[in-house]
Write a protein that binds this DNA or RNA. Structure first.
Lengths: 121, 121
DNA sequence: CTGAACCCTCAACATATGTTTAAGTCAAGC
DNA sequence: GCTTGACTTAAACATATGTTGAGGGTTCAG
């Protein structure tokens, strides 16, 4: 087992993930990432923090909210392994495809009837 | 050619589309739907308004903003025909699939390297 | 051990997406 | 033609997603 190192500061994670420090604090507040605190009350993150944020940004683009993303990431242990990420990836992709499928189904039904838009919702 | 009838009031469109009257006004302000005005300054919408709103709601679920949806709907003429809706549908689906593809690519690259998340952005 | 650079919280601001409410106007049936 | 319900605008409120700034504390390299 590897020892999880909580060595990254807010600005470290911000630089690694490409978002502003304020966003790093925001994502921590909302459970997308987690931190331990130093004696002086400063946040320290592990390697996975920047990763989680980068994945979160892409997931937001397919319509997932920060809350939904945090819920999905709740399945990730500290120091996540490939299998852990794999399960999360599957969940995210399934959700994205499900939403796209709903869009396609709606548009297809709309055309299918020739009624353009009188379909039942 | 069919004569486009602008006969629907705000509450008519709200009822047809399943959103609140305030949302109907909001979507008009943001260009998702368009209205003519009566002599007394009340909004009147045509048949396509409720349809546009229902499509917009589904499109929002895949991450499109109201602004983006309005831009895509700008290609719809008054009294849109099946072909017009078809082009809009294609644009919406392409965008949704593009975003899902970006998510998949990101997650696949992440796993692929075995580095979990040290991929270049 | 000290100073520069970074961190803390909290509050205000900003944008997107709506809803609610107040004060006043319009429309449609009787 | 009047009444009643729906409409108008504008502003305030609410939630999501952040950013900025003030006032003060922490860390770490030298």
């Amino acid at each position: 087992m590897s020892i999880t190192a909580f060595t990254r500061s807010v600005s470290d994670v911000a630089a690694e993930s490409g978002v502003a420090p304020s966003a790093v604090r925001f994502y921590e507040q909302h459970g997308v990432i987690t931190a331990i605190r130093t004696q002086g009350d400063q946040r320290r993150f592990d390697d996975s923090a920047a990763c989680r944020i980068r994945v979160a940004k892409v997931a937001q683009r397919v319509g997932l909210t920060v809350r939904e993303i945090a819920e999905i990431f709740a399945a990730l242990p500290a120091d996540p392994q490939p299998d852990d990420w794999g399960r999360v990836a599957t969940t995210l992709i399934d959700e994205a495809e499900s939403r796209t499928a709903a869009l396609k189904a709606y548009l297809t039904d709309m055309r299918g009837g020739g009624r353009l838009c009188e379909i039942e919702v």
